[in-house]
Every structure is written in structure tokens, then in C-alpha cells.
């Protein structure tokens, strides 16, 4: 099932609706990398609220998305990681360094806005 990608002013918002197969995730990665150039977007939000598992492959793909988007000149923030999922990720030993995260869509948008104001300076994550 393909993940819908919404364009909202300078940002792209991908909201994952249900559990994804590996192929779906890879497709999402490629679609975002493509669209971020096409729409000249400055930021990407991936909303994973609906995911009840983020295993090593999913985490790695999200991290790849973040890196690829960065190389394409935009910022990515992953939003909506559930408490249980975060707990499982760290126990599994998943390193999510250099990937920006925020509580939900609203916080994600705030993060990107803040980044826009700061320009390209500083690559601090979170708040």
C-alpha cells in the first residue's frame, strides 16, 4: 500500500496509514527523494504514528530517507513514534542519530519552521 504524500507550501508530509511492507517503505523513500526535488520542498515530515513496530529495516530506511533528503537540500523530521515503539527501538539497539524526531505533526511543523528561520546554520536536533 503506497503512502500518500501531501504537499503543503514548502513541505512534504507523508502520513503512514498502516503497517508497511519493506517494499512499501522503499517506495516511500524513492517517492520522497523524487518529490522533494520536483516541488523544491524545504522540509519533509514522515508521520509514523500508525506504526506499531519499527524494526531495524524500517528504522534504517527512515534514516536513509533523512540522509537522502538532506543531500537533496532539505530537512526531514520523523514524527509520532509511539512510546512502546521507541522503547523497543532502543532495546534493539537501533541508533537513530542525526535523525530529527518530534512528538507529532504539529511539533514537526514547528521544528521545520524553526529550521527555516535558522537557515542552514547548526544541525542540532530536537528543540
Amino acid at each position: 500500500m503506497a503512502v500518500p504524500i501531501l504537499k503543503q507550501s514548502h513541505y512534504l508530509i507523508a502520513t503512514i496509514q498502516s503497517a508497511l511492507t519493506d517494499a512499501d517503505l522503499v517506495q516511500l523513500r524513492d517517492a520522497l527523494a523524487d518529490k522533494v526535488g520536483k516541488f523544491r520542498s524545504r522540509g519533509v515530515i514522515v508521520d509514523v504514528t500508525a506504526l506499531d513496530v519499527l524494526d531495524s529495516f524500517a528504522s534504517r530506511t527512515l534514516r536513509d530517507i533523512s540522509y537522502m533528503i538532506k543531500l537533496r537540500g532539505a530537512e526531514t523530521v520523523i514524527v509520532g513514534i509511539q512510546p512502546e515503539v521507541a522503547f523497543a527501538m532502543v532495546q534493539l539497539g537501533i541508533a537513530f542519530e542525526d535523525v530529527a524526531t518530534a512528538l507529532d505533526l504539529e511539533e514537526g511543523l514547528l521544528y521545520l519552521d524553526k529550521k527555516q528561520k535558522l537557515g542552514q546554520h547548526g544541525s542540532q536536533r530536537g528543540f
Partner: peptide
């Protein structure tokens, strides 16, 4: 609990992959 069930689901995911 929710987090234990998530751990089990995550392990299954890794093993199946």
C-alpha cells in the same frame, strides 16, 4: 503489556526478515 507485546512483535519481525 503494550511494550512487551511490541518487543515480541519486533523480534518476530527481525527473525522473519
Amino acid at each position: 503489556s503494550g511494550s512487551e507485546a511490541t518487543l515480541v512483535a519486533t523480534a518476530i519481525s527481525e527473525l522473519a526478515r
